[in-house]
Design a protein around this nucleic acid. Structure first.
Lengths: 199, 199
DNA sequence: ACGTTACGAGTCTGACCCGTATCGTATTTC
DNA sequence: GAAATACGATACGGGTCAGACTCGTAACGT
């Protein structure tokens, strides 16, 4: 959506790539600093980026379009499971939940929760981001079943929720301040693997 | 914070209880209809409640104070586990997650996620609401350990996250649209009890 | 009856914001 | 060098909102 020029040749001054960058960065910075999505104003972004408002409107139709591009920048690379031990792969994937390359992401993510449930567009964007990660975990679980490490009768989708949920509520909602986030992935995976029932 | 009169005796016209009620209800209605917390204006609340703005400012210092009172109203009664089967009690508690007496609660809850992480006050309010529920689940788990139904070496806090997380991400974030919310509590509890590992 | 306080409705000032337009200037192609 | 397009800055009309204020009225105590 941005101005990546594959246009044949345009006369006149070309758009500044630095302005593109500055606008996106300013948007993410402001969000990470505590501004909520709707409190975020184009004016504030322009000021922060050292850019005129017109420069923003020349590139994006409005706040939504800009946010879409800005948030796209946030989604980190997918974790790549090693493929040896199912248990270790799951620990890796669970540990990667809510952990993006950009440190600002952690602050921004909780803000998206409301938007996600109120706008179909944003819900779609959200699903686009998480569904490849779900797929990754799904494959590891299937592999575990094939290898006989996991029971064949488990519900894969429920199991994914089982693994993802605890990590997500902790990282996004700070559900239980006393839980140690560092060791949580390991403990979650092991607990789900072994169950809690006496036997 | 409201005007519940335990003041000795005040001269003049007493505050209208109906106004209190109408204001709170209007606030919750507007939130449930899709307004976000910060898009919510005192003016809109006053209009909706059929009340003058001054009547609101007479009772609350500002939007935050009003919201605090309004949201307090939302938190439903605690589910009361029967105390017979640990498994059934857990299903009950897990099923009660995010299910409040007020149907508006489901729509409003996701909006709180961002607020919770940005304001210490609201984080405290949030913890106040969920910590008694956590305690309830903790007791059931401890009972299970005492009765020998659950393993003695489980980490109770992690186990609670295990049970709560999947339900919460589903109800609040609609994490996986394909998961059936009705049967989820049962399936989560059983999966956590039995584990997914082949044996 | 009278003072006190609350009521709904409305007004007013000062913010802030959106999205557009218009400056003078800078950078590119032809 | 001329036309075209970009730039940052700023001004604009139109809008919403917070809070404090003012009405005339209503409900309470003494």
């Amino acid at each position: 959506m941005t101005s990546t020029a594959d246009a044949p040749r345009s006369p006149g001054r070309p758009r500044s790539l630095r302005a593109d960058e500055a606008i996106i960065e300013a948007t993410l910075d402001l969000l990470a600093e505590g501004s909520t999505i709707e409190a975020l104003s184009i004016e504030a972004i322009a000021t922060r980026a050292g850019v005129g408002k017109a420069t923003i409107y020349r590139r994006w139709a409005g706040k939504d379009a800009l946010l879409l591009d800005a948030l796209r920048r946030l989604k980190g690379v997918l974790a790549q499971p090693a493929g040896h031990s199912v248990r270790d792969d799951l620990v890796l994937l669970v540990g990667a939940i809510g952990k993006n390359v950009d440190p600002r992401a952690a602050k921004i993510m909780p803000c998206l929760a409301p938007a996600v449930n109120r706008s179909a567009d944003q819900f779609q964007l959200y699903q686009n981001i998480i569904s490849p990660r779900r797929q990754l975990m799904r494959e590891v679980l299937r592999r575990g079943i094939d290898e006989g490490v996991l029971r064949a009768d488990i519900d894969v989708e429920v199991t994914m929720a089982l693994l993802t949920g605890p990590m997500l509520i902790q990282r996004v909602l700070q559900w239980n301040p006393d839980l140690d986030e560092q060791t949580l992935p390991e403990r979650v995976v092991d607990a789900v693997l072994e169950g809690i029932q006496a036997r």
